[in-house]
Amino acid sequence: MMSWRGNMRGLIILVIVIILFSTVTNNSASAYLNSTNQQTPFDDFDLTITNLTFSKSEPKEGDNITISVNVSNNESFPIPNEEIPIQNLTLTLIRFEENITERKISMEPKTNSTFDFEWKTVGGRQTITAFLSVETTDSNERAPLDEMSKEIWVEPEPIGDVYSPILALAIIFLVVFGSVTIPSIIAFLTDKNSSRKEK
């Protein structure tokens, strides 16, 4: 009865420790995403990402594909423009929280432009986000203008094979169960040696 209670108590303590540990280690999550949700001072700008396309719909891992981002400037002035305090217009491609690439672009008034990016694919279901941002001449801070995300499935390269872990398991069993015979063999060899010496 005591051991049952002791085990239960131990288990409860373990579960509490695990929950505390998980809370501490997993608290670094959406810092980046939150940072992109700032209020933009360029809300009135009519500069948008209108399309995001991939050159291959089902690429394989490691393939180089072209990601095309279509940006539309419906304003009557070019961007960047010295008259309005915009220093740089940047188009960034993001996979999860990691920048794939970024490029400084310029847009003529009332135009649509397509920008191509080369990307060496990474296996799995990938969400690619095109992110348009501006920098002002007053401060070097970047403000978001528009973003567009699209999912793509990249056929991954399989990792390893199924036989290796089976072989590893077989080696472990062989060593563990085989080690039972070692003392007998050692005893046999030492007996043999001692009887030789006696002779």
């Binding site: 540990f21 670094s28 799995g124 399989p158 990792i159 390893g160 290796s164």
Partner: peptide
């Protein structure tokens, strides 16, 4: 080995690190 799935990082060790173990070396 579930190469098609997004790493979750559950259990001990927390979030996925910047390296990933090599299959044969790991075994």
């Amino acid at each position: 080995v579930f190469v098609g799935a997004t790493p979750i990082g559950g259990g001990p060790g927390g979030q996925p690190g910047q390296f990933s173990p090599d299959f044969y070396q790991g075994i």
